[in-house]
C-alpha cells in the first residue's frame, strides 16, 4: 500500500514547536517532576495535514470486534502504513527519547476503538508489567460525557483522566502502581468511535 506521507515528499508529521531543544528540555523536566507518577500530554502534537491523512487511513481500516466481557469490549486493527511511518519517523523517536531521557523500543502498538457499550475494565489478567504507555488520540467529534476516556488509577484514589483531544500525544509511566481502564461508552455516543493508538514502550535504563 502506498504511503501518502512519503508520496507527498515527506510533509511534516509533528508540530514543529515540539522539536525545539529548549521546549524538549522543559517537557522532560515536566515529565520527570513527579517521580511517583510521570505523565505528560502534548496537545496538537500531530500536524493537522498529517492528521487528516491518518483520518483518511482510519476510514479505510478494517477493525475487528474483540470481546472478552470480563475485561473489555472493543474493536482493534493493525496500524496502517501512515501510522507505521509515524512510528518510524526519526523526529518522533527523538522527541520521546528526549522526554524520557533514555533510549526506548516499542514493544507493542495497538490501534483500538470504542463505540457504544464498549469498555475496558481493570482485571488481574490485564495487569501489564511496569512500562511506559504512549497514547495518540485519533478521535474527533466526541464529548467526554459519552465516556470512552482513558483513566489511569492506582486503585487508591489517585488517578489521571485523559480527555479526548484529537492530535494529542500522552506519555504515562505506569510504574508498578498504575493501571489503565477505558470508561464505558454510553448510548449518547450513537455511531461515533473513540479511537486511539496505544504504544507500550520498553525504556532502556
Amino acid at each position: 500500500m502506498t504511503c501518502e506521507y512519503l508520496s507527498r515528499g515527506g510533509l511534516e508529521m509533528i508540530n514543529h514547536s515540539y522539536l525545539e531543544s529548549s521546549t524538549l528540555s522543559e517537557l522532560s523536566s515536566h515529565f520527570n517532576s513527579d517521580p511517583e507518577f510521570r505523565t505528560l500530554s502534548l496537545a496538537q502534537f500531530l500536524d493537522p495535514e498529517f492528521y487528516s491523512i491518518l483520518q483518511k487511513e482510519l476510514k479505510n481500516t478494517i477493525f475487528e470486534r474483540d470481546n472478552r466481557p470480563i475485561m473489555y469490549r472493543r474493536e482493534t486493527a493493525e496500524p496502517g502504513t501512515e501510522i507505521l511511518s509515524l512510528l518510524s519517523n526519526s523526529d518522533f523517536g527523538t522527541i520521546l527519547n528526549q522526554i524520557l531521557g533514555h533510549d526506548f523500543s516499542i514493544e507493542k502498538s495497538t490501534l483500538m476503538r470504542y463505540g457504544v457499550s464498549d469498555y475496558q475494565i481493570l482485571h488481574d489478567n490485564l495487569v501489564e508489567s511496569p512500562g511506559v504507555d504512549v497514547i495518540i488520540d485519533l478521535t474527533d467529534d466526541w464529548n467526554d460525557d459519552f465516556g470512552g476516556y482513558v483513566v489511569y488509577t492506582d486503585g487508591d484514589g489517585e488517578f489521571l483522566t485523559l480527555s479526548q483531544k484529537g492530535r494529542m500525544l500522552s506519555i504515562v509511566d505506569r510504574g508498578t502502581s498504575y493501571h489503565r481502564f477505558v470508561k464505558y461508552v454510553n448510548h449518547y455516543a450513537e455511531n461515533r468511535w473513540r479511537t486511539f493508538l496505544i504504544l507500550t514502550l520498553k525504556v532502556e535504563i
Binding site: P69, I70, Y119, I121, G147, Y184, N186, H187, Y188
Partner: peptide
C-alpha cells in the same frame, strides 16, 4: 440514564 453494571 447511562448508568450500568458491567460483567462480573
Amino acid at each position: 440514564d447511562t448508568d450500568y453494571l458491567l460483567c462480573h
